[in-house]
Design a binder for these strands. Sequence first.
DNA 1: GAGTGAAACCGAACAGTGTTAGGTAAAACT
DNA 2: AGTTTTACCTAACACTGTTCGGTTTCACTC
Lengths: 219, 219
Amino acid sequence: MARPKTPILSKPGIREAALAIVDRDGLEKLSMRRLAQELDVQAASLYSHYRTKEELLSDVANEVTSHIDVSRFEDGDWREGLATWARSYRAALAEHPNLLPVIASGPGRREEALRRADVVHGGLVGAGWPPRYATMIGASTKYLVVGAATQSFARGFDDDVRVYQDRYPNLSQAHRLAEVAAQIDEDGFELALTAFLDGLAPVFERVRVPVEDAEPSGE
Amino acid sequence: MARPKTPILSKPGIREAALAIVDRDGLEKLSMRRLAQELDVQAASLYSHYRTKEELLSDVANEVTSHIDVSRFEDGDWREGLATWARSYRAALAEHPNLLPVIASGPGRREEALRRADVVHGGLVGAGWPPRYATMIGASTKYLVVGAATQSFARGFDDDVRVYQDRYPNLSQAHRLAEVAAQIDEDGFELALTAFLDGLAPVFERVRVPVEDAEPSGE
DNA sequence: GAGTGAAACCGAACAGTGTTAGGTAAAACT
DNA sequence: AGTTTTACCTAACACTGTTCGGTTTCACTC
């Protein structure tokens, strides 16, 4: 076969198949040959659409994180803006846990992510945070989200799960533990997020700037 | 050559060489053949000492995180205990940033890490936190540390760095930016940690239990 | 001291990886 | 109708982690 009558491959189609493999079998099971096979095609053909595997994965990551909600920054309530953003971010990561290493390992020219970082920064500055604080808070909130997803209890990627097992031996039956672990992940994240935001409030009172001076100054 | 008069390889020696490669050239440049070459040996010989590359990396990770300071939990001050632990944890990760994906991707039967998780949990419970909270707080603190290390500004693994560049164009000269980025990482982490701990204080007052009832109950 | 078994290395190979070069036929455009 | 581009192909390259079987030397037992 040479060129088919109607194209078999497309960028969205490739992304979809790639994500399906990652979700189903794990990130390490995604190879270009396996992906090609899933699409009834030879591996080399994929390179007509994506220049490298990395570029493909970056694109998939972009798609997965593209529905994160930063809308609540618009009405000047930084606390609500941050909380909504963080929860929606966490939810996006939780939907495709196997893809997490890709997302966590930095932005690969992901325009959507950049635009959102800008909204977060702008929202915080607009609410009265000094630009430098806005940067730190945006980053810190992401620390919580990414860290929580990476070190998830329920995925077994947390040392505490073992301690927990030892201390509560009657929870060691796998199904009970999984159940409880998911709940602890959820509660732990909410506890951390709330404590963080609560702790930020007094800082805000100390460093807030009048709104008309809140524009970035170039430092 | 067959068996040498004095052994060339040893587990600590292999770990040291592996860590050197990771630190110098990056995690992805570490291959068994390259590691063997560095040790004047054939790749297959490494398998007499480590059964898999994964086991070796897990061991290296264990070594790197083995000096984390959990000593301050002993005198019942949970705040100081957490803060010291978190800072020392972060410092350990910062010393070998290229190894981070290995450390972040979960405990691979790393006994040291387990023992420390136990100290943290025990310290928090001993100070009066209910066991369930102790678990969540231990995990959450780690979220901050791991997240901060993973999404580091200075490593360019943070979207905010781009926003920052746009907003402060005079910082875009690479050396100035790197300088400032490291400082922001540091300040941002301290801000987040402090806010988190501050936010935890009122929760503690609400949920604290008398010390004699603080033993794990089995739920 | 001879014999035995384990230990520590080696060379060669297997099955897999991402990626590229060069070929072919159909589509799209001039 | 002729040309270029597109979208696929086969085959290969250079690499990866790992295993097999072999060789030599060490450490031990009788």
